[in-house]
Amino acid sequence: MADKIKKVSIVCSKGSLEGIYPALIMANGARMEGIEASVFFTFFGLDAITKKKMKKIKVATVGNPAMGIPTLIGALPGMSLMATKMMMKKMDELDIPSIPEFIELLSDAGAKLYACKASVDMFGLKESDFCDQVDSVLTVGEFYELSSGAEIIFT
């Protein structure tokens, strides 16, 4: 059998509910297996750790053929919110935490959370815009450095 995975670095690049959850679930799943885990939030993925936005993450109902909702209907006011509420309810039943709760869980589980410097600069964000669980803002070079020996997963 091949060696066990010891370390993962997960890049979270999307800001929709269905874009963020896979990264969080994979990072948490890694910690539950005793695997070291870091999450690097970049571009709209930063919304997951931005205080003002992390509670308002929604499902994309437009341009998402898998939803089974025609784009024009998905674009109606309230559709995204409704789809999000339905999904959140189902996830709560499965004991999957909301995004802010998940970030706290990851931090408590010993996962490291980082914001991407290029995106932070681009969106004009400051360290104080991020939730307390964020460890630091990193350049991509620093991210590669700390990912030494890790499997890098892009989501």
């Binding site: 948490n28 539950m32 004991d95 999957i96 935490p97 709760e101 869980l105 408590d108 589980a109």
Partner: peptide, 13 residues
């Protein structure tokens, strides 16, 4: 789950 251990069991993560 870890979440249930915390919420129901009162066990800090």
């Amino acid at each position: 789950t870890i979440r249930r251990l915390k919420k129901v069991g009162g066990i800090d993560t």
